[in-house]
Amino acid sequence: MPTPDVLWNTPVNVRLQNGAEKSFESIHDTLDFLENEWPKARGAYHDAAVISCRNALRRQTPPAVSKELFLAACLEAGLAVRGGKRRSNGERFSPTVHRHF
């Protein structure tokens, strides 16, 4: 039986190495990308993000933790990311993200 998906509060957009932008709105999509489409050698944040996404799908880890680890994995791999948390005034930001499109 398939595991129900978990959606992010806000999507994460990643600029891939070929210049294309991909949007991630759920843990299933993110996990599929991490396991099957990851563009570089896998580092510590990548491995932690995979484990965290699997646990979030089983409701054992908060989705926000998985999202932050995914953002860290993208930065570790040199991928530009956009998305994350919202400030109270509605602006989007993520404290772990420092690369912009």
Rank of each mutant, 00 (worst) to 15 (best):
A77V: 01
Q60E: 15
E25F: 02
G90V: 08
L71P: 00
K85V: 00
M1G: 14
L75V: 01
S88F: 01
E21L: 04
P39V: 07
L69T: 00
A80I: 03
N18D: 15
V97R: 11
A20Q: 15
C53M: 15
D47F: 01
G78K: 02
D32R: 13
R54F: 00
V14Q: 05
F70G: 07
F70H: 05
S94Y: 02
Y45C: 12
V12C: 11
G78C: 09
V50G: 06
Q60S: 06
A72I: 04
H28T: 10
P63E: 08
E76H: 11
E35G: 00
A56E: 06
N55Q: 13
A56L: 02
P11S: 09
A72M: 15
P95L: 15
F24H: 07
N55K: 13
T10G: 06
S94F: 03
A80N: 07
G78W: 03
E35R: 09
V14A: 06
P2F: 11
S23G: 02
P4M: 09
L75G: 14
K67D: 02
P62D: 15
Q17A: 13
K67G: 01
T3G: 03
V65F: 14
F24E: 03
P62M: 15
A77M: 04
A44H: 08
L69W: 01
N18V: 03
R86N: 07
R15E: 09
L34D: 04
W38I: 02
G83I: 00
P4H: 08
V81Q: 06
S88K: 11
P63D: 01
S66G: 12
P95W: 10
R99F: 04
R59Q: 13
G78L: 06
N55I: 00
G43W: 03
G43H: 09
T30L: 04
G84K: 10
R99D: 05
C53F: 11
L79S: 05
D5Q: 09
E37H: 08
R99Y: 07
N55G: 07
V50M: 09
L71C: 05
I51Y: 08
G84Q: 07
P63Q: 08
S52H: 08
Y45E: 12
D5N: 14
M1E: 12
A41S: 11
F24T: 03
Q60P: 00
R54E: 13
S52P: 01
D29S: 14
S52M: 10
V81R: 07
D47N: 08
L75N: 12
N9Q: 10
T96Y: 07
D47P: 00
F101Y: 06
L75T: 02
V14T: 06
Q60G: 04
A41G: 12
L34K: 04
F93I: 07
E68D: 12
F33G: 04
A20C: 05
R92P: 00
H98A: 12
S26K: 11
R92F: 05
Q17W: 02
L31G: 02
W8Q: 03
L57A: 10
H100S: 13
T61Y: 04
R58F: 02
Y45H: 14
L71M: 06
T61R: 10
R82H: 08
H98W: 11
C53A: 15
R42M: 12
N13K: 14
L31W: 00
R92G: 07
R92C: 06
E25R: 15
V6A: 02
L75D: 08
F101M: 08
E91P: 00
L79A: 09
G78N: 04
A44T: 09
V65E: 15
